[in-house]
Simulated scan of single mutants.
Amino acid sequence: MAKAMARHILVKTETEAAALKKRIAGGEAFDVLAKKYSACPSGKKGGDLGEVRPGQMVKSIDSVIFKKELRTVHGPVKSQFGYHLVQVFYRD
């Protein structure tokens, strides 16, 4: 079965997510911003979701993790929880 290693930042608004994505693109560390701004418990670990398998995450996040380019910050991605920035390290 496929698996992947990913991290994310969850915020309430698309505007917040876009602003954080811009800060990451400008050189700020994803994990530092996740610890400070993410509403998800994974934020305490720099947004680290650990190893995930298809179907473990909500559909919109699952499709990013298993179909989008690696090592790129994707988003804002909307889910019922808010807006996410997602970065995938590897997938097999």
Rank of each mutant, 00 (worst) to 15 (best):
M5K: 15
K12I: 01
A39S: 14
G55E: 08
G46W: 05
P54N: 08
A29F: 12
D48M: 12
R91G: 04
R91L: 09
T13K: 05
F66S: 05
K59D: 13
G26K: 10
E28L: 06
V77Q: 00
V86F: 05
Q80T: 15
D92K: 13
E14Q: 15
K22I: 02
F89P: 07
V11T: 03
M5P: 00
G46A: 02
G27C: 00
H8I: 05
A25Y: 10
V64G: 00
K35D: 07
R71G: 02
F89D: 13
K22H: 08
Y83R: 08
I61Q: 06
K3V: 12
P54Q: 04
M57W: 03
D92H: 11
G26T: 02
D48A: 14
A34M: 10
H84D: 02
K3D: 14
V86A: 06
D31Y: 10
V58G: 11
T15W: 08
I61H: 08
L20K: 00
F89R: 11
E28C: 00
D48K: 11
P54E: 07
S42T: 14
E51N: 10
V64C: 03
A18Y: 01
A17R: 01
K3Q: 15
V64S: 00
G26S: 11
R23M: 04
F81P: 04
A39W: 12
E28Q: 12
H84M: 04
G47H: 04
S79L: 01
A39T: 13
P41Q: 09
G55H: 09
T13D: 04
C40M: 12
V73D: 08
S42L: 11
A4G: 08
H8V: 09
K21N: 05
C40L: 13
R71Y: 10
G43K: 09
F81Y: 15
A29H: 15
K21H: 04
E16V: 03
T72S: 03
G82F: 05
E28A: 02
Q56G: 14
K12G: 13
T13V: 10
V32D: 13
F89Q: 12
S60D: 14
E69A: 10
A39Q: 15
I24C: 07
V86T: 01
V77L: 01
S38V: 01
K78D: 02
F30S: 01
L70F: 06
F81D: 14
V77D: 02
A29D: 15
G43I: 09
S38F: 03
G27V: 01
K59V: 10
V77M: 01
G27F: 07
E14K: 14
S79T: 15
Q56N: 11
